[in-house]
């Protein structure tokens, strides 16, 4: 790279979003050009802002949201509902209400506020007689002994492919999980 010219847009993006585990060596020009540093910093800040916003929108959800989501999920699990179809009986928010979901934080809050009602209706609709959902039923105290897991990381891909194949099996035809992304 010519050390006297500004970074191209591609080079700026590559500084913030390298297609490798590490960014390449810093271009000589970047070390000395305030304009280019500013461009890289602006993109970097925006990315942090976006990442923080999406993370925060989820992490800040009240515990009631997670409890309701878990309850609705377990109702779906127990009901053995077909999963390739839309999931109205476990969906906690009617699609027609999406209009108010413009604001993610508000949307999640609204979701949480509506959860007990809608979640309750979901349980009724699914005909589930499941008892009230408890918190995690198993805790780490139940680990009797820590043994090295029989882990073979090299077989992970193979496993995933075999799982995907199984999911495509006729007995599980309703499940849409394929071997490729």
């Amino acid at each position: 790279m010519n050390p006297t010219r500004h970074l191209t847009p591609d080079e700026i993006v590559e500084r913030v979003f390298p297609a490798d585990d590490r960014a390449g060596a810093m271009p000589e020009h970047l070390a000395t050009c305030a304009d280019c540093q500013e461009s890289v910093a602006a993109l970097h800040d925006a990315w942090l802002l976006d990442r923080g916003a999406v993370s925060g929108a989820v992490d800040d959800l009240p515990s009631g949201f997670w409890e309701a989501q878990a309850a609705a999920t377990m109702a779906g699990v127990r009901a053995g509902a077909p999963v390739d179809a839309p999931v109205p009986e476990v969906g906690v928010f009617p699609p027609r209400m999406r209009g108010i979901l413009r604001h993610p934080a508000l949307a999640f809050s609204s979701l949480a506020a509506a959860l007990l009602l809608v979640g309750g209706l979901s349980l009724l609709r699914s005909g589930s007689t499941a008892p009230p959902v408890q918190t995690a039923t198993v805790t780490t105290s139940e680990v009797r002994e820590v043994t090295p897991a029989a882990v073979n990381d090299a077989s992970d891909d193979e496993l995933l492919v075999s799982v995907d194949r199984a999911l495509e099996d006729s007995s599980l035809a309703g499940l849409v999980v394929e071997e490729t992304l």
Partner: peptide
């Protein structure tokens, strides 16, 4: 970037995982 979809799909993921557990 859609909260309602995120919620619904998350539930769906667990239901699918449950049904595929034998594998």
């Amino acid at each position: 970037r859609d909260p309602a979809d995120a919620d619904g799909i998350t539930q769906d993921v667990f239901v699918k995982a449950f049904r595929a557990l034998p594998e």
